[in-house]
Design a protein around this nucleic acid. Structure first.
Length: 560
RNA sequence: GGCCCCAUCGUCUAGGCAGGUCUAGGACACCGGGUUUUCAACCCGGCAACAGGGGUUCGAAUCCCCUUGGGGCUACCA
């Protein structure tokens, strides 16, 4: 039996890569792919390369590459070669490697292993439909005689699109050796000739990726199962180009959404659409204004025809207070998850260390990582389990580290708590022991940083705690006792509240909860004794008075 | 439709390649109880799975075949 250790030292230096197309933020699936490649490289003491696959002129957004890199950095996934880092195999943006690809395209053309095509989109469509009628996939009819350079020039002059197709060898079956799935055989003739150079002069993914993997000396490619069907074609190209042994492929399972199907970034707009449809009396004009969309653009989106950019979706959701499922890595950041949580959780989606360990630090993950333990079957992204993981990681994290994460979080959500100093934030964090997300810590304590007149009273809380039973009366009593106190500490506040509860023959909750609602407007906050002490006596009294006034007013007006 | 992949508790999974030690282990969720100034956290207990059918074998969750189910791909996207 070959151990993981032996396998790693037996092989040459391991080189892996993550090759995202910069179409938006890094999403969970991409992060997982990046992570596995990174873990393998780190485990083996090899190299991890970041390569940006931006050969599609239509889909790239200018900021996307930076967004992806920011998200990788947040996760702690660093790259040895790539944009920003540099390296001997650059450039690392495929759009800047055109001359390299041209050279290899020309080589295939010269060797009659590829040929020019001049079909229009309509002509291809017709071919595809014909194939469909015969219940087959389109297998492009290769011409008997390949067009030559003169033909290509003529087509260009006539304004016809000029592409290049790879002539896939049709005589033998193609066997792909996959680390997680074993040997997969594609029958001879199954893989049709595919386009390697687009009419805009850029190579297709299937071509660029083969050339770059070769030139960058990639030894292991871990990617999603959705690429499995590309592999025979790529492997075939690898051979035609004379690149020798292809790299080790490992096709991971796909991450499935709890709504069914592959986890996709389309889910956020879809969730928003659904929520808007289910809502009544929304002012659509106002809504459009909030997102700085025209009313028409909004309608188009709501009809499901087109989707605006993510920041617009976020704005709409925020305005409507609709929680959207987190899909992109930044979404999780903004929801108060720790990067350690994401790395740990993602690593366990389709991989496990082989023992009962689940909560693991990054170092442990690296130490335990073994590519042969990748799982074959698809897995569902379980948000509840993710929450449990986050709870554990918050619990585990040293205060200083947590403080750092918390400050990052406050910044990204633009919280009024940014104003607080480290000492105060540390105390707050300690008071929130057991919190599941950084968001919960913020929500429990932000009332301390709001102006007294900016407190929003939650209707349900007011009804349940102040209007039912003796809530208001108890609050008034608390006010009097508090006003009479000279020294305020958690202990004296506790003594006062407990004493009062005992006198009234009620549980502590009956006096503590009305006070809590008066301070922060909701039933959830930091422990009450600390809350009062931190807010100070004067401001506590102010808020109590304000609350009594507002609630009594509402009650007599029959508003509640 | 064609091609490809997959199949253990509700979910993530261990076990499978080297068949017996599996009356199938862990975690999350769920249910019941405890603790409690809120939300959490925490403690104790419980429920819960080898998709179905055929083989092979003394013996199958484990090997083979079929069925069913799920997923992926099927672009001048990656």
């Amino acid at each position: 039996m070959v151990t993981n250790e032996e396998r790693l030292t037996m092989s040459d230096k391991v080189v892996t890569r993550f090759a995202p197309s910069p179409t938006g933020y890094l999403h969970v699936g991409g992060a997982r792919t990046a992570l596995f490649n990174w873990l393998l490289a780190r485990r083996a003491g090899g190299k991890f390369i970041l390569r940006i696959e931006d050969t599609d002129q239509k889909r790239n957004t200018p900021t996307a590459a930076k967004q992806v890199m920011d998200d990788l950095k947040w996760l702690g996934i660093n790259w040895d070669e790539g944009p920003e880092a540099g390296g001997p195999n650059g450039p690392y943006l495929q759009s800047q490697r055109k001359d390299i690809y041209d050279k290899y395209i020309q080589k295939l053309l010269d060797e009659k292993k590829a040929y020019y095509c001049f079909d229009t989109a309509e002509e291809l469509d017709a071919l595809r439909q014909k194939a469909e009628a015969q219940k087959k996939n389109l297998n492009y009819p290769r011409p008997e005689k390949f067009p030559d350079e003169a033909d290509a020039q003529k087509a260009r002059d006539e304004g016809r699109p000029v592409t290049v197709r790879f002539a896939v060898p049709q005589d033998d079956p193609i066997v792909v050796r996959d680390v997680v799935r074993g040997e997969i055989t594609f029958a001879a003739g199954e893989i049709g000739d595919f386009i390697i150079l687009k009419s805009d002069g850029f190579p297709t993914y299937n071509f660029a990726c083969v050339v770059d993997d070769y030139l960058m000396e990639i030894t292991h490619i871990i990617r999603g199962q959705e690429h499995l069907n590309n592999t025979p074609g790529q492997q075939s190209l690898w051979q035609a180009l004379g690149f020798g042994e292809p790299p080790n492929y490992a096709h991971m399972s796909v991450t499935i959404s709890d709504t069914g199907g592959k986890l996709s970034k389309r889910e956020r707009p879809a969730a928003l659409r659904k929520a808007v449809r289910e809502m009544q009396d929304i002012d659509l004009d106002k809504l459009a204004e909030v997102a700085s969309l025209s009313r028409e653009e909004l309608d188009v989106f709501l009809d499901g025809e087109r989707t605006p950019d993510m920041p617009v979706i976020d704005k709409l959701a925020e305005f409507l207070k609709v929680p959207l499922p987190e899909i992109n890595i930044v979404d999780f950041f903004k929801s108060g998850y720790l990067p350690e949580t994401m790395v740990n959780f993602l690593a366990l989606l389709g991989w496990n260390p082989g023992d009962d360990r689940e909560i693991m630090k990054i170092d442990e993950l690296i130490e335990a990582f073994d590519i042969s333990r990748l799982t074959k079957s698809n897995s569902l992204f379980d948000r509840q389990k993710l929450l449990a993981f986050n709870t554990e990681h918050i619990k585990m994290a040293p205060t200083e580290k947590l403080l750092g994460h918390f400050k990052d979080y406050l910044k990204v959500i633009d919280s009024p708590m940014i104003a607080a100093d480290d000492e105060l934030l540390s105390r707050i964090i300690k008071l929130c022991e057991g919190a599941r997300t950084l968001a919960q810590i913020e929500q429990k304590s932000r009332f301390l940083f709001l102006d007294d007149d900016k407190i929003e009273y939650d209707d349900k809380a007011v009804k349940k705690v102040l209007l039912k039973g003796n809530g208001l009366e108890n609050l008034a009593l608390v006010r009097d006792r508090l006003a009479a106190m000279s020294e305020l500490s958690e202990q004296t506040i506790e003594d006062m509240l407990r004493g009062l509860a005992e006198e009234k023959q009620v549980g502590l909750g009956k006096v503590a909860q009305p006070l809590r609602v008066a301070l922060c407007g909701t039933t959830v906050s930091l422990p009450i004794f600390d809350s009062v002490q931190l807010l100070t006596k004067d401001r506590t009294l102010t808020r109590i008075d304000q609350t009594i006034k507002i609630v009594e007013g509402k009650a007599t007006a029959g508003g509640i």
